[in-house]
Nucleic acid binder design. Sequence first.
DNA 1: TCTTGACGTAAAGTACACTTTAAGCCGTAT
DNA 2: ATACGGCTTAAAGTGTACTTTACGTCAAGA
Lengths: 130, 130
Amino acid sequence: MGISIKEASEKLGLAPHTIRYYEKEGLLPALQRDEYGNRIFEEKDLESISLLNCFRVTGLPVATLKQMVDLTLQGDSTIPQRAAILREYKQDLVRQQQELDRAFAIVNMKLSKYDLLEQGQLAPQDRMGL
Amino acid sequence: MGISIKEASEKLGLAPHTIRYYEKEGLLPALQRDEYGNRIFEEKDLESISLLNCFRVTGLPVATLKQMVDLTLQGDSTIPQRAAILREYKQDLVRQQQELDRAFAIVNMKLSKYDLLEQGQLAPQDRMGL
DNA sequence: TCTTGACGTAAAGTACACTTTAAGCCGTAT
DNA sequence: ATACGGCTTAAAGTGTACTTTACGTCAAGA
């Protein structure tokens, strides 16, 4: 049925330690164990972890994820609080999007400038920092 | 002519300490001082710091920024190395862009689902984690 | 049987980027 | 004249998210 932490780790691209850490922090409250106490991962667990990881790598702190999980365990009455957290998080995603756009623009500009310089097409006074 | 660290800090939205930290790490090698040793910031310094900050908040480590600054100080012969760093960084920006897109999609889906649930329009079995 | 490898826990350690602390100098306002 | 606010330095401290270590259990293969 379910898979081991090693297999889950490989499917998710996360270290086994990181998954144990997430469980210890209360991010995976429904994880099953086998007769020896080993964690068993089903498809829904992999999806949960993948979602947690997606939010994590885009800047949502572990503590906030924990808060969301706890609210979810309390039932539908906490939906307004969860929605509030998500709306704030979304604002942050927008900010990150803007920063990413700016970084892209600068990198592309510099890379084309480097190309021209390597071909000797650009005068020195047209150069810029970094 | 130039402005103080306090003013620069306000213009950039960075703590004065952070700017001093960047200078100490070698990220600002050309910063001028006044007769009392106080840092003086000109427009080009603000631009440099703003660029450094843009790259930083989009995941480029301080150590890599330092590497770029050092290479730049060595002249045009290091352009190939700088271009290589920027290309790798750009790859990472693409990865971040994808993660951001996924996070946006999930957040939007959840927010609309919350809206429907609050209106009692959605059956319980249609609900999802978090 | 015994070693190997994967799993477990708890706790300490690491990496990164600041951030705070401590101590001191400088020019102006009271 | 002396206290205040802003600047300086060097070094220690903080927060976050892992990551590593140390130690122990278990089941299968040589």
